[in-house]
């Protein structure tokens, strides 16, 4: 956590830039996941530009905070941020989803600087983060593990295995988020496989739970501060708007995983710039 008070204007400006890069990456690749990437951009911007201690010049710095993208399909948002911060050249974004690129469709830790864990099939990331957080406990290290899950993702049984594990081993160095946008590939989450009431589920698994507006930097940052003082692992249910920032994508399930036409792309960029 940066000691200075958050500069909300700066974070908003960054989020707008990142959303622009997300649109460009997916449009160029003609493939990728726009909705969740745009929707979670504010969370990741708050983490990478204000909350987390990390150093792009030394990605392996052992005291760094770690971020694990458990909803691994949202690579556009994390690649855009890692490039902007300087983990790898911005030109690399041109190679997203192309043969030979280190920027795979889903995160691949051995190749991409700044990616902490390989994820992709849902549920792996939060579980892997538990192993990493346990390792930090064993070594007496005090950094934190930030995890982003999709709400559709937490329908996976493995997520609840990880939830039990965190409780057993008192992994209060884990601060996880559910990107709660109520949409998944096939439709509305409560139609596909209901998750509500979600907060009591996590509470009953022994987690501290907060529910916030996932586009409100002040709420994100203050809640993480509380989470870091918790004696339990924390789940932050972040209510978000899938496709946030582009009016015709907001809350539209069809924008989960499809690329833009040229007209759609131009319109989306013009909306971000207004």
């Amino acid at each position: 956590m940066k000691s200075s008070s958050p500069d909300f204007q700066f974070l908003s400006k960054k989020a707008k830039e990142i959303r622009g890069e997300i649109l460009k990456m997916v449009h160029r690749a003609n493939s990728g996941h726009l909705g969740g990437s745009l929707g979670s951009a504010d969370l990741l911007v708050a983490l990478y530009y204000h909350i987390m201690q990390h150093n792009p010049d030394n990605p392996g710095w052992d005291k760094r905070d770690r971020f694990i993208l458990s909803k691994g399909h949202c690579t556009p948002v994390i690649y855009a941020i890692l490039a902007d911060i300087g983990y790898f050249p911005k030109e690399d974004l041109l190679t997203f989803r192309r043969p030979g690129s280190h920027l795979q469709g889903h995160p691949y830790q051995p190749k991409t600087p700044g990616i902490e864990a390989s994820t992709g099939t849902l549920g792996l990331g939060i579980s892997t983060a538990m192993g990493m957080a346990l390792a930090a406990k064993l070594k007496g290290e005090s950094h934190h593990y930030y995890v982003l899950c999709g709400d559709g993702e937490i329908q996976e049984g493995q997520v609840w295995e990880a939830a039990m594990f965190a409780n057993k081993y008192e992994l209060n160095n884990v601060v996880a988020f559910v990107d709660r946008n109520y949409l998944q590939t096939d439709g509305h989450s409560e139609d596909i496989m209901p998750l509500d009431p979600l907060a009591p589920k996590w509470e009953s698994f022994g987690w501290q739970v907060h529910t916030i507006d996932g586009h409100n930097y002040s709420q994100i940052i203050e809640t993480v501060q509380m989470a870091k003082r918790s004696s339990k692992p924390t789940m932050i249910i972040a209510n978000t708007i899938k496709g946030k920032g582009v009016s015709f994508m907001e809350n539209q399930v069809e924008w989960h995983g499809k690329p833009t036409s040229q007209d759609e792309f131009d319109l989306a960029i013009s909306q971000l710039n207004n």
Partner: peptide, 11 residues
């Protein structure tokens, strides 16, 4: 996956 996490942190 927990084992993978432990390996990532050097165990």
């Amino acid at each position: 996956s927990v084992a993978a996490g432990l390996a990532l942190e050097g165990f």
